[in-house]
């Protein structure tokens, strides 16, 4: 079997609090681009690992605006421009009425945009991990420290991780 290059080391911890402490310590050591694995979203973890991406909320907002405008424009075109009809003597540009469907679809597009952004941005995030980490979805927590060239060897990182209380270290 050929030697696989170790890309990162993952340290296993028992509890969410332990995980948070470990992450903070590791960041204190100067490591960046950390990741973690947990069975549920741990409050404070995204900040701890330095996650600051706000693309998803922006995508949602943009989706709402675009969806709203598109549907509204469509309604205006259908009911006021392409085939205008006198319906109950109401205005052709019945904007309160048109706004309703636009709002509904806007919300839907916002949600879809958020989900699409998430799926797209997350597409490779979970890829490095395999069945070895199956307990990450059950009851174990992991910190993932990338092996950046130069600064530390994998073994050194491993020792460091055991030092701060990891139950186990796995090579990724």
């Amino acid at each position: 079997m050929a030697e696989r290059r170790v890309w990162a080391l993952a340290a296993e911890f028992r509890g969410a609090d332990d995980l948070l402490d470990a992450v903070r310590q590791i960041r204190g050591f100067g490591f960046r681009d950390l990741d973690a694995l947990s069975p549920f979203p741990v409050p404070g973890l995204p900040e701890a690992i330095g996650f600051e991406d706000r693309t998803v909320p922006y995508a949602a907002a943009a989706g709402f605006v675009l969806g709203f405008l598109a549907v509204f424009a469509g309604e205006v075109w259908m009911n006021a421009i392409d085939y205008p009809l006198n319906v109950a003597g109401t205005a052709l540009l019945a904007w309160p009425a048109f706004a309703y469907a636009a709002f509904q679809v806007g919300c839907l597009v916002a949600a879809a945009a958020a989900v699409a952004a998430m799926l797209w941005l997350n597409r490779r995030v979970n890829a490095p991990y395999d069945e070895a980490f199956r307990r990450a979805t059950q009851d174990r927590f992991f910190v993932v420290v990338p092996v950046a060239d130069g600064r530390f060897t994998p073994r050194e990182i491993g020792d460091l991780l055991y030092g701060i209380g990891a139950a186990r270290v796995i090579e990724v």
Binding site: D35, A36, L37, S38, P39, F40, P41, V42, L45, P46, I49, F51, D53, R54, T55, V56, P57, A60, A110, A111, A114, V115, A117, M118, L121, N122, V125, N126, A127, Y129, F133, A136, T137, V144
Partner: peptide, 19 residues
Amino acid sequence: GWRGSAVAWARWRQTYLAV
């Protein structure tokens, strides 16, 4: 392909709240 990555969780939570 979910593995519980915190980055994934972070985005997931943003999406969850947005939806």
